[in-house]
Design a protein around this nucleic acid. Structure first.
Lengths: 110, 110
DNA sequence: TATTTATATTGCAATATTACGATAATAATT
DNA sequence: AATTATTATCGTAATATTGCAATATAAATA
């Protein structure tokens, strides 16, 4: 055991879980916030912003990229990272949906 | 190693990471969706809805509760679970914030 | 072409997560 | 009081994640 039973859940559920999981680490939240703060593509000084080694940061960036939350394009000998909107909209939509639903039904529960 | 360096990040970053991590499993997404679908407190048939054993589901419910995404109150000999709005609003706010910010700056990036 | 700069990959140790059988705990019912 | 129903906890095996040193890769520059 130890492996998630992904094939027992819907594609949508797995997809949302992948997105949420990618954000389930403070370093990756910090990366997203930093990319947002600088208001543009940022070419690699993310390592200086975080209290983690270069290989570790690189790994976190890879996970965010795999999940579709950021994208990186080669820019000379450095890499330009920025937020990938479609991925973000997908997970935002999930919370919006829940929130809208709750607004209608608030009184019935607990 | 293997332990997250939580003390190197802000409280807000850690808090968001905890919420996102709690949703980083398809079973826990499925639980949230189910609680939403039934429109009310649900007394324990979550186990029947999921392709997982009772102890495993109980563990997932505990994680969602610890993260503040659901709440459970004792109702006779069963337990009434439902979505905890404040936790949900917190993580929704994070995505809303990013989304709003991106809407303004879209043209500058990538 | 050698060197520097920037990022990725590999390998490994420490720790965390996932899943479930067995069992415990609690309250309702008989 | 014994039984049943419902949920939680313990113990444990399998797998995943986290973090970093060492190393590799790739592009710019001297």
């Amino acid at each position: 055991m130890g492996a998630t039973k992904t094939d027992h859940f819907t594609e949508s559920q797995n997809e949302l879980a992948v997105l949420a999981k990618a954000l389930g680490h403070p370093a990756r939240i910090a990366i997203m916030e930093y990319l947002l703060k600088v208001d543009a593509c940022i070419c690699g000084d993310i390592v200086n912003e975080l209290p983690l080694s270069q290989p570790t940061v690189s790994q976190h960036l890879k996970e965010l990229k795999n999940a579709g939350l950021i994208k990186g394009s080669i820019e000379g000998n450095s890499i330009c990272y920025c937020i990938n909107e479609p991925g973000l909209e997908k997970i935002k939509g999930f919370f919006q949906h829940i929130s809208d639903h709750l607004a209608k039904k608030r009184s019935e529960c607990c």
